[in-house]
Write a protein that binds this DNA or RNA. Structure first.
Length: 491
RNA sequence: GGGGGUGUAGCUCAGCCGGUAGAGCAUCGGACUUUUAAUCCGUGUGUCGUGGGUUCGAGUCCCACCGCCCUCACCA
């Protein structure tokens, strides 16, 4: 028999012994009156009063005729004090049959121990659920990354920092909704299963729609649907959506991720940038109590205004390269190569510039910065409108924090002919794995879309910034993992 | 997909030049009525990721495979 089986058997035996005492156990309902954090925060008001708490046994210290335990609930940990005199022999025996990891309910009086820790002197105790498997070690916790992700519940039980990351993430999403709702934005839901995918540059997941016997794609963005709603007169819409991209994973890419997109009629990209910087700093302030964050080894301040740097200025400043004076593609490729940026000979101008920006500019964008005014022939500029008087420049921006791109926004292209031509050109160039032209979207534009500004923000990445973690997987409760044979639970 | 790293007890880790696998915590038994990484006495613990190979002998060396991490590539 393995050690694990022995542990399980011992715990099952103790459960039977406990049940044999005939005291209440394993009720269908318990009904705690307080969380641990509340009791600690409001100690003065609660001292001496009776409370009911419930949680998981995290530590146990038996001392003959008395004992201490810590339980963990959604508000953190609180200490329980068990005394033979108070509980009586039967209930004290009941307590002694508990294991680390068991879920218990307790009723007792709030007091402070000699060392000043807020505790509960327990008068009544009930086992709510038995843990047949042992908890990770109490001092070092659980640090194996694979186990932390595959069995996230253990990570949440064992590691305070993990609970804090997800508190931050949830609070941030709530803050974003509150912010947009206050500005009159309407939250909507658009299709996840799409017959034509679009709105971003990515390979989709493909599946089959039985009812229509057609191929559909899991959305890579919701942009094109949200702008149809702008055409429909909704004026201010947003969606917080799970998007899916069938591509490689990295510290900042997850195949399944959460994106905020919002669109505002009669606005341009300057309006949207002002809202983005205000929204993100407002949310940081409400979630963390400060706009200063520590991320990827940098201390940065999210307070507005953020810097705005055009692509041309950025390359002049950090790459000593004036792209506006270099018209010849070959010359530009040479200049790129001289700066250590190698591109294939047939690479388009926009892509060469994109490579230059990635290699030479991004690392400098430490303080919150909007990179603005991208060349129109960037693939990523497909849905962005040309600048007035500068048909070669798209009114597009990307927010950066500590060198990481957080999103992508523009003055939306609302001219159907230009949009169609650009989609067809791109379609022609990209060959395999390209999106089809979305004719239904073109038709929507032909009905007239007001001048509109919009943006997509990676929520997981914003959570990384707020929580100060270096991997997107730390901000996703169940990050995608390669399937693995898991041991079946014994019945 | 390429390169690098890693996988040993439930958890956190050690294991030298190839010679019968170790510690702490957890577990189990005992003492202890304000402890808190409780303490003290005693006790048990293994598919060394999987499969091959070399060897008298492999956790250790070699090969392949698997998982995970980092990195590069891919990424309208």
């Amino acid at each position: 028999m393995t050690e694990r089986d022995e542990l399980r058997e011992s715990r099952e035996q103790k459960l039977e012994q406990l049940l044999a005492l005939g005291l209440p156990a394993l009720p269908n309902r318990f009904g705690p009156t307080r969380h641990s954090a509340e009791i600690k925060d409001q100690y003065e008001a609660l001292e001496g009063s009776v409370v009911r708490v419930a949680g998981r046994v995290m530590a146990r210290r038996l001392m003959g005729k008395a004992a201490f335990a810590h339980i963990l609930d959604a508000g953190g940990q609180i200490q329980l004090y068990f005394k033979l005199d108070v509980l009586g022999p039967e209930q004290f025996e009941y307590f002694k049959l508990l294991d680390l990891g068991d879920l218990i309910g307790a009723e007792g009086t709030v007091f402070k121990t000699r060392t000043g820790e807020v505790s509960i002197q327990v008068q009544n105790l009930v086992l709510l659920a038995k843990a047949l498997l042992p908890l990770p070690e109490k001092f070092h916790g659980l640090s194996d990354i694979e186990t932390r992700y595959r069995q996230r519940y253990l990570d949440l039980i064992a590691n305070d920092e993990t609970r804090e990351i997800f508190r931050i993430r949830t609070a941030a999403v709530r803050g974003i909704r509150r912010y947009l709702d206050c500005l009159g934005f309407v939250e909507v839901e658009t299709p996840i299963l799409q017959p034509v995918y679009g709105g971003a540059a990515a390979t989709p997941f493909t599946t089959h729609y039985n009812a229509f016997d057609t191929t559909v794609y899991l959305r890579i963005a919701d942009e094109l649907y949200l702008k149809r709603l702008i055409v429909g007169g909704m004026e201010r819409v947003y969606e917080i959506s799970k998007d899916f991209r069938n591509e490689g994973v990295s510290w900042k890419h997850s195949n399944e991720f959460t994106m905020l997109e919002f669109y505002q009629a009669y606005a341009d990209y300057n309006d949207i940038m002002a809202e983005v910087e205000d929204m993100l700093s407002t949310v940081a302030q409400s979630v963390l109590g400060t706009t200063r964050v520590s991320f990827r080894g940098h201390e940065v301040d999210l307070s507005p205004p953020w810097q705005r740097v055009s692509i041309a200025d950025a390359l002049r400043r950090w790459a000593d390269l004036d792209i506006e004076s270099i018209e010849d593609l070959g010359a530009l490729q040479e200049e790129a190569a001289r700066r250590g940026v190698q591109v294939a000979p047939d690479t388009k101008r926009g892509v060469v510039i994109e490579e230059l920006v990635g290699a030479l500019v991004e690392p400098h964008l430490i303080e919150p910065t909007f990179l603005i005014d991208f060349p129109v022939d960037f693939p990523g500029s497909l849905l962005a409108k040309r600048k007035a008087g500068r048909p070669d420049i798209a009114e597009r921006f990307e927010p950066y924090i500590a060198g990481m791109e957080l999103g992508n926004g523009f003055t939306e292209l609302n001219e159907p002919k230009d949009q169609l031509r650009r989609m067809q050109e791109l379609n022609h160039e990209t060959g395999e794995n390209h999106a089809e032209v979305d004719w239904d979207y073109i038709r929507a534009l032909e009905h007239g879309m007001p001048p509109t500004g919009g943006v997509g923000i990676g929520i997981d990445r914003f959570a990384m910034v707020l929580a100060g973690v270096d991997s997107i997987r730390e901000t996703v409760l169940f990050p995608p993992m390669r399937p693995r044979e898991t041991p079946r639970a014994e019945s």
